[in-house]
């Protein structure tokens, strides 16, 4: 089977994992965990929720690995699962609660060395609606093309472009307010 793989190493790992090799799966996990966790965090989840989301993504990915057809890169397949997991958690928790939690984290822990910056940018991003923020994260942080983002978010490419346009407009206004 031929996949759209990021590297020959990833291709080998996928083949071995599909053949049932646990070590190959663990290597795939280590290769992609931080990426998925960062995506979940930037999408508006707290650090703890981002860890939970990342865990859920890999549990689902492991369970349904056989359904990965290779018509997209493996990491994009993971982003697709992550998108749903993050949206579910955001709905469950409510964004306001998450924002409060982030501010609290900033006061009490030293999880992030650049906490002040992280909180400020996170706050601004947090003021965007979920779908706009998700588009911004995929395009600007994860480096996806509009086409790739549209597949991950299960919407039209033009919808992604429109969301980015609106998100940038809103971010500009928010930044102006902050001086």
């Amino acid at each position: 089977m031929h996949w759209k793989e990021d590297s020959a190493e990833e291709g080998d790992l996928l083949r071995n994992a599909l053949a049932g090799c646990e070590k190959a799966w663990a290597d795939l996990f280590r290769m992609h965990y931080h990426r998925v966790y960062a995506f979940a965090f930037r999408s508006g989840l707290s650090a703890e929720d981002a860890e939970d989301a990342a865990q859920e993504v890999f549990v689902k990915a492991a369970r349904y690995l056989e359904t990965f057809k290779g018509d997209s890169a493996f990491k994009n397949w993971l982003y697709g699962i992550a998108h749903h997991a993050v949206m579910d958690l955001l709905r469950k928790r409510g964004r306001r609660e998450v924002l409060l939690e982030r501010l609290h984290e900033n006061d009490t822990t030293s999880k992030c060395s650049a906490a002040a910056k992280h909180t400020e940018v996170g706050d601004v991003l947090g003021q965007l609606p979920d779908d706009l923020r998700m588009a911004v994260v995929l395009i600007y942080y994860e480096g996806k093309t509009h086409k790739e983002a549209s597949k991950i978010m299960d919407c039209a490419e033009t919808t992604v472009s429109w969301r980015i346009y609106i998100a940038k407009k809103r971010l500009r206004k928010l930044l102006e307010k902050r001086g």
Binding site: A114, H118, V121, Y141
Partner: peptide
């Protein structure tokens, strides 16, 4: 946006 850093899990 680049300023948003991600805490280590």
């Amino acid at each position: 946006l680049v300023k948003l850093e991600v805490p280590t899990p």
